[in-house]
């Protein structure tokens, strides 16, 4: 079934179309949420709520947009909201820091990457670095989009990203 037909059926609240969409994207959404929340039950709740919210608001989607990406953004927004409410994460503005102060400590070219190691190291990072890295490296958001999501300046995002990336590379280099 092509995506446009699927979207149209979902707009008409067709149960079978909704379940098809769910089965297509459930694991993608689950992994995106788990990377942010680090908790299985929380991530499952986020998936459930995000699909239902998505189906309720599906009339807002433009035909040409990729349904999976659209739903993924809903689950990421939802997961960040959960994090804010539970842990009251605040990303401090650090505009006083000059970009030149943050240097890359480890050269990426010297490291042989593996998916499992990267996942393990990201998982262990402090929340404020982990979220920025996940959104930038894995979910492919731009720094500007991340700033908008987290309600911080783009420069702060770039700084957090550089620090987070340095920490990640250090860990990867240790385990190398």
């Amino acid at each position: 079934m092509n995506e446009q037909k699927l979207i149209q059926d979902c707009k008409n609240n067709v149960y079978s179309a909704q379940m098809q969409v769910y089965n297509l994207y459930k694991n993608r959404l689950y992994n995106s949420s788990f990377r942010i929340l680090k908790n299985r039950e929380d991530a499952q709740d986020a998936v459930q709520e995000s699909f239902i919210k998505g189906f309720e608001k599906i009339h807002q989607i433009k035909e040409e947009k990729h349904l999976g990406s659209w739903l993924n953004r809903i689950v990421i927004n939802y997961s960040l909201d959960v994090l804010r409410k539970r842990k009251k994460i605040v990303w401090l503005e650090e505009t006083y820091l000059l970009e030149t102060e943050i240097e890359e400590v480890v050269n990426e070219d010297d490291i042989t990457f593996s998916v499992d190691k990267i996942k393990a190291c990201i998982h262990q990072l402090k929340e404020k670095y982990r979220i920025v890295l996940v959104l930038y490296l894995i979910e492919n958001y731009t720094h500007k989009e991340i700033g908008h999501l987290l309600k911080i300046n783009e420069s702060t995002v770039r700084n957090q990203y550089r620090r987070g990336k340095n920490m990640l590379l250090e860990q990867l280099n240790k385990n190398h």
């Binding site: 459930k26 694991n27 993608r28 689950y30 992994n31 995106s32 788990f34 499952q44 996942k119 894995i138």
Partner: peptide
């Protein structure tokens, strides 16, 4: 795709 290895 390898980063999305968890399954519901």
């Amino acid at each position: 795709n390898e980063f999305d290895d968890k399954k519901l």
